Computed example of a mutant assay.
Amino acid sequence: MSHATSTPMMASSARLNKGEGLSLGFYKFVFMTPTILVLALIVAAPLLYSLYLSLHEYIMTYGQGDFIGLQNYAVMMSAEFAGVSWVTLKLTFLVVVIEFLIAFGLALLLNQPWLRFREFYLVVLMLPMLMTPVAVALMFRLMFNPNLGIINWLFGLVGIPAQGWFGDPNLALATVIFVDVWHETSLMLLMLYAGLKSLPLDPIEAARIDGANALQILRHVTLPMLRPVILVTLLIRMISALKSYDLIYMLTQGGPGKSTETISFYAYRLGFRFLDIGQAAAVSFILLVAVVALTLVLLRIMKES
Rank of each mutant, 00 (worst) to 15 (best):
D210F: 06
S23H: 09
L299R: 01
L196E: 10
I68E: 06
L55H: 01
R118F: 06
L192T: 07
Y52W: 15
L39G: 10
G167D: 14
S305N: 13
L37A: 15
H220R: 09
Q253P: 02
R219V: 09
S2T: 15
F93L: 15
Q253D: 06
T295W: 01
I36V: 15
L235S: 12
M10S: 04
R237I: 03
K18H: 10
Y49T: 09
H183A: 11
L51R: 01
V84G: 07
R300F: 14
K243A: 11
G255M: 03
P161H: 07
T222W: 01
Y268N: 01
A162W: 01
F140H: 04
P146W: 02
L110K: 11
F144E: 02
T92Q: 02
A74Y: 03
F285P: 00
L294E: 02
L41V: 13
I217K: 06
K90F: 06
L110G: 04
M238I: 11
F166N: 01
N72S: 08
F285A: 00
I204D: 02
L154T: 12
P200F: 08
T88H: 03
V232S: 11
K258D: 14
L192M: 14
G211I: 09
F144D: 00
G83Y: 05
L234A: 10
L235K: 09
I230F: 06
F26L: 08
S305W: 06
M191F: 11
G105H: 12
Y266M: 07
L55F: 14
A137N: 14
F274D: 13
P46L: 06
L37N: 03
V221N: 13
